[in-house]
Amino acid sequence: MPPWFKKKQQRGFGSGDAGYARLVDNSAVDLSHGVILYLEDITVSFDGFKALDRLTLSIDDGELRCIIGPNGAGKTTMMDCITGKTRPDSGSAYFGQAMDLTRMTEPEIAAMGIGRKFQKPTVFERHSVFENLELALKRDKRVRYSLVAQVDDEVRDRVSDTLQRIRLEGEAERMAGLLSHGQKQWLEIGMLLMQEPRLLLLDEPVAGMTDDETERTAELFQSLAGQHSLVVVEHDMAFVASIASIVTVLHEGRVLAEGTLDKVQNEPQVIEVYLGR
């Protein structure tokens, strides 16, 4: 069978279409053991190459976890698995105690309360900043509702709150495509905030930001931790040092080390991986 016959990037069929994109009250996520995300033995291979190799990871509710690792370690692939973009070949991924992420589609997972920022900032370039945020707002996402939804005062308040937080107050009516790289990163983070997710996955959120902006992002993330859980993938060690309590090092699809930044930085394998052999 030719390799492209394999269903890789595809999510399965008929996985509960009915539950799509309902407005899900994500406080319903069962957090009885204080764990919000639990990955077990996840394996993903592309044409025989293992991007994730029996990866096991767990994130506590309210935690801010940083994930580091050299290029190609599988960080983005891990996020793809959590958000339903890539189906793992084997292994399981649980959101809370009961929600099996490997059986859900992207919109379902998003509606469940997992928000994601892409490595390459992805915003709606031909919509205004305001519309970008409005689309992200946590509301009923069904077609039926979208046909009658109106931009009311509550929406405007929420959007202007977020605009303030991401420092784009003056840009509300600008096309998102005209923003700078860093501003797009902020806008995307802002869209995540509008979604009010329980768990935020942020793939290299400060790439392309000035030091000043990076610092503000660190503040923002720290203020989010507690009510939200955050998983931040970053190469910028200074940024990681400024926000993280616990750091996980991925390498070749596996967890290489885990602990405080100081601790992992002193582990010989980590040094070897980062400094090369």
Partner: peptide, 8 residues
């Protein structure tokens, strides 16, 4: 059934 079976 196999969208990627097309233009691979």
């Amino acid at each position: 059934r196999r969208p990627q079976g097309l233009f691979a």
